[in-house]
Design a protein around this nucleic acid. Structure first.
Length: 307
DNA sequence: CTCCAGGGATGAT
DNA sequence: ATCATCCATGGA
């Protein structure tokens, strides 16, 4: 069946290509992927999202499945008030340019385990490579589903990964991350435990996450932002650190990690995670000069704000 | 505080 | 075909 969903102030391609999620495959003018266990094919036509997918309860499940519409709009966070979020950003030039460039980019609500596992894999890796690791884990150890004639795979559960050998994970090109992912899968064991952390304060959640092997402040902040909807979380990687140094610490000597944390928490406020993602996405793909690979030079910028 | 292992894609030579 | 670059975590 095809669901048509109204999705104003939403840019599907930016949202799926900005480095917050790594398994969606772009083809046939849309994206194939899975929202948790549910395989879907999503296309955007103007302000309409067209979704192929069937939110049937799985065999053996007795629970009533939420309607497809709710699953999709929850996942893509279509309820986030983007205009209001943008208005809460600090008023400086770098931020304004980034916000303008990233109109319609939303921080999505990812399933907790797959988000955590994927970001453990992300350490020291570039987007292209993270996609390959995610794909290998899914096709080898997840469950294969079909949507619109294409195969997509779900992300393997923590229980499933915990029974594998480090060797099997290394064969997915995880390198030293295999050990960390395996250890974390064993510690997490049941994914319900991750759901229980939803109620924790930001600080306590950060502590819990950082106790897992392969999770430091950067990965923990990504998981808090992309899976726990902590919109203040501000992950600092080399890209965003470069932006901060150039825009906000110009001419000063290299700020310490603690200084950067204190500054970002105070300066970017309640939606710092959105601000971070916009600055990050603009730095990676919108800026004319950049190191290494990362993105294509693209100077296009339209006027107008997020509203 | 500093130094460095780690692995594979990607761009440069 | 080789070489340099990208990079978070954790341990010395």
């Amino acid at each position: 069946m095809t669901l048509k969903l109204s999705a104003p102030q939403f840019d599907l391609a930016k949202t799926l290509n900005c480095g917050q999620v790594f398994h969606w495959i772009e083809a046939n003018n849309g994206f194939y992927g899975a929202i948790g266990d549910l395989p879907v094919f999503v296309r955007q036509r103007g302000e309409i999202l067209m979704v192929e997918g069937e939110a049937h309860p799985r065999a053996g499940s007795r629970e009533l499945a939420p309607p497809l519409e709710r699953i999709v709009s929850d996942y893509f966070a279509l309820d986030h008030p983007l205009a209001e979020i943008c208005r809460s950003f600090p008023n400086d030039e770098a931020m304004s340019i980034a916000a303008d460039y990233c109109q319609g980019l939303r921080i999505i609500r990812q399933p907790k385990w797959e988000c955590l596992a994927t970001f453990i894999c992300s350490s020291m890796k570039q987007v292209a490579h993270i996609r390959q690791m995610s794909h290998a884990l899914r096709t080898r150890f997840g469950e294969r589903r079909e949507i619109s004639g294409e195969d997509v795979s779900t992300f393997p559960t923590a229980a499933r990964l915990s029974e594998l050998s480090e060797r099997q994970l290394r064969d997915c090109a995880l390198g030293y991350r295999a050990k960390n992912l395996l250890a974390t899968a064993k510690m997490v064991a049941s994914e319900a435990a991750l759901d229980d952390w939803q109620e924790l304060s930001d600080e306590n959640l950060m502590t819990k996450l950082c106790a897992l092997p392969g999770v430091g402040p950067k990965v923990a902040n990504c998981v808090m932002l992309f899976a726990y909807e902590r919109l203040r979380a501000f992950p600092i990687d080399v890209w965003i650190e470069r932006v901060l140094r150039e825009q906000y610490f110009r001419g000063k000597r290299k700020p310490t990690a603690a200084k950067l944390r204190a500054f970002t928490a105070a300066y970017f406020g309640n939606h710092g995670g959105y601000a971070q993602q916009y600055l990050f996405h603009h730095a990676r793909t919108g800026s004319p000069k950049q190191p290494g690979s990362g993105g294509s030079p693209n100077r296009h910028r339209k006027n107008g704000d997020c509203g």
